[in-house]
């Protein structure tokens, strides 16, 4: 007997709806849980005062600063390197065995568990280069960790720029570099920004690689050679050591809200950039 295609269609539609709601539902449940458990403990004092008694009392000010320093510096470090690599791979080389090796390497790097990056950072930056547990060690480690994401997304974004734009630019007497800077990169910016945003997310939420390299000092970092603690690490320690679940959830909520905020701001600026160029 042949199944009625209309019924199949209806069934598939319902299934897809259920799946979509399920995905969004999980997200809502997680955020709601953190919101309910954390909202009671969040106030200005929590955000701008120092933790006391290992974080059992007081606020999370140093961990906010630690997070901001780690994220901004690692993005600043990884973006030029990653976008540069992507430009090299797409515009300056032909498809050879070398580019295939580089690409394979990049993909492999993306699949390595973050704890291994942490271990590498610990052995290389902290011990070998004598940087100690410091924001610098953390920044370099995280930068390496997010590099593959930035390279891959930038590469895809650059490849998506129509070949015709390059041809026009060359025909008007532009050099390769001028074409890359003035035509290719502006068109690829939204895609590159997406990669950077994904990387910000990873850097903000990272714990294993950070504990190994940046340490978990609760003091306010005053230079990049100081050890420091990020919000994610703080949350991990508070929960893991059973210090204070209330403070842990409050920290988690700040974390989630800041990621949300970053995403909204990035989305907004991206739209602005896109509308300027098209």
């Amino acid at each position: 007997m042949r199944i009625n295609p209309k019924k199949v269609n209806k069934f598939i539609q319902i299934m897809l709806n259920v799946q979509a709601f399920f995905t969004v539902g999980i997200l809502i449940v997680i955020v709601a849980l953190i919101l309910v458990k954390g909202i009671g403990n969040i106030n200005l004092e929590f955000l701008f005062s120092f933790p006391e008694d290992m974080g059992r009392h007081g606020g999370i000010y140093p961990t906010i600063i630690g997070t901001i320093m780690l994220v901004i510096l690692s993005i600043l470090f990884a973006t030029p390197l990653g976008v540069g690599t992507a430009i090299f791979l797409t515009e300056y080389t032909k498809e050879t065995i070398l580019t295939k090796i580089i690409r394979f390497g990049v993909e492999s790097l993306a699949g390595i568990p973050s704890i291994l990056y942490g271990l590498f950072g610990f052995i290389f930056f902290v011990i070998k280069l004598k940087m100690g547990w410091s924001i610098l060690s953390g920044v370099l480690t995280i930068a390496i960790m997010i590099l593959p994401t930035i390279i891959r997304t930038s590469e895809e974004a650059i490849k998506a720029v129509p070949k015709n734009f390059r041809i026009v630019s060359y025909s008007l007497g532009a050099t390769k570099w001028e074409t890359v800077i003035k035509v290719v990169l502006p068109s690829a910016t939204p895609g590159i920004l997406t990669g950077i945003m994904l990387s910000v997310g990873r850097a903000v939420g990272e714990t294993a690689a950070v504990i190994f390299t940046m340490g978990s000092s609760l003091r306010l970092p005053t230079s990049i050679m100081d050890s420091g603690r990020t919000m994610a690490v703080h949350f991990y320690i508070l929960a893991r050591e059973g210090i204070s679940m209330e403070k842990a959830y409050a920290t988690a909520l700040v974390l989630v809200l800041s990621i949300l905020l970053i995403n909204i701001v990035a989305y907004y600026t991206m739209n602005k950039v896109v509308s300027r160029f098209s």
Binding site: N164, F165, I167, V168, S171, L172, G173, A174, F277, S278
Partner: peptide, 29 residues
Amino acid sequence: RRRIGTVFAVPIPLQRSIFENIAYGPRLK
């Protein structure tokens, strides 16, 4: 290529304003 202009079969405006499209070449110079 600065001495030889080319117009292609498909018009390909760059993703910028009318003015900036024309000014692209001169700015390069």
